[in-house]
Nucleic acid binder design. Structure first.
Lengths: 240, 240
DNA sequence: TTGCGTTGTTGATCTCGATCAAGGTTGAAA
DNA sequence: TTTCAACCTTGATCGAGATCAACAACGCAA
């Protein structure tokens, strides 16, 4: 299998010469025939952690599929208070359909590979192909369900339940290979400050709650970012 | 124009004899030709405030359009803590597409009229009619935007900003006739306890903040439920 | 290795909103 | 019009999480 020699560093997009073969099964909503139709104009772009992919109230001229890494969607109040309103994992589709202005800021939380598709091309394909719009509808409905779940976390859970809920969410997304098992491990894709912005807390409170989970042997933390969940059931029981 | 004599009290559905004429321009996502196609099987049902329209994790066999009133969508934790995750106003479409299990509880906040459509019939119409799915996609995207906006309110705003944001939201939905004007008036469709569940606060805090807005002459309150916003710009400036 | 900026931890104190408690309004039904 | 339950307001106190502060750990570059 071809490696990723053709994927260069941030802001060096590379034309995808055989998109179908490479993205099949990875490229989220796009099926092989659709990928083939778009293969000449999709670009795989690598972004480093922290890169801004789309800014609130700014026009965006392409959609993308997240192929690797985690993208955070944030909204910011005038005085600087920030809230992460969604996390997108591979192979999610990225971009607000049918409006050029993004309502959120999209930022690479970890290093991220995106498969970009020009807006016009995707919208043309979609208008000829109701099945594609149907699949995008399914993802949109899932995102709405997730947003509403998170509203309960933001509005009604304690700090300790919020942090447990966050770890549970990340564990199920980043270590699906051990599904059903008690032990999971993963690297946190967010800093303490980002986690705080996702949970509506301060970074100090997040740090304290993580320390408490560690003291209670629910998790182990190695080098700030690596987390081993010792018992998923026990973690879940702390999610409120 | 025909009045609503054929609409009886809660749980007494009445067959819609000329759906097209009556719902045209009211029935949210459905266009006249679609209404005509469904006219024999839609039912207009009136529900009193407090009626449960769909329960979390329970199967639902129909979709509906909200024709009058406000529907609240709630989620509840095991220990009883509750969060309102969405409000639906006429002429919104109601119901989670493509899955029979509702992820939320839908309850009539005020008295509500629904135009119900059997699931199977709407899904059949949708599969033959990509334009209908497209319109539902637009509403879903709008709901997702609204949910993410509200996540900022829940996660990052103070109690006083939350209450101001709520009043602003309700004012723009329930008194659109005075759009652009400083003064708006409406009846609150929610109790103090419901408002608290929408904002992630307690009912006492909501009451105190409303009293403060009244003392500051931003609003006037008559008989608990009726609100006059004296200056929308001043209200907005308190939304954070 | 040393130096240094970024990121994370922990402690002390403060504050906003929750909780506990009592009484006041409202509006529908008798 | 009286009655009553549901709803709302206000006051006193408490506590979870914010804020302020100091330091520790990590990773990268020189």
């Amino acid at each position: 299998m071809a490696d990723r020699k053709d994927i260069h560093n941030s802001d060096t997009p590379v034309l995808c010469q055989s998109c179908e073969a490479r993205h099949n099964g990875m490229c989220g909503v796009l099926e092989p025939t659709e990928l083939l139709a778009l293969s000449k104009i999709t670009r795989v772009v690598r972004h480093e952690a922290g890169a801004e992919l789309a800014a609130e109230a700014q026009p965006v001229d392409s959609y993308a599929n997240v192929m690797r890494g985690v993208v955070k969607l944030t909204k910011t109040l005038e005085d600087g208070r920030q809230q992460i309103v969604g996390l997108q994992f591979a192979p999610d589709f990225l971009g607000r359909l049918y409006t050029k202005e993004s309502a959120v800021t999209a930022e690479a939380a970890s290093d991220v590979d995106l498969c970009r598709v020009p807006r016009a091309a995707l919208e043309r394909l979609m208008s000829e192909n109701p099945a594609l719009e149907h699949r995008l509808m399914q993802q949109t409905l899932r995102e709405l369900d997730e947003a509403r779940d998170w509203m309960v976390t933001l509005g009604r859970k304690t700090a300790s339940e919020k942090v447990a809920s966050f770890l549970y969410l990340i564990a199920t997304h980043l270590d699906p290979s051990h599904e059903g098992e008690a032990i999971r491990h993963f690297d946190l894709p967010l800093t303490r400050s980002d986690i705080a912005d996702f949970l509506g807390l301060t970074l100090e409170t997040v740090s304290r709650q993580l320390s408490r989970l560690r003291a209670d042997k629910v998790i182990a933390i190695t080098g700030n970012r690596h987390v081993d969940v010792m018992d998923m059931a026990r973690l879940k029981s702390r999610c409120g």
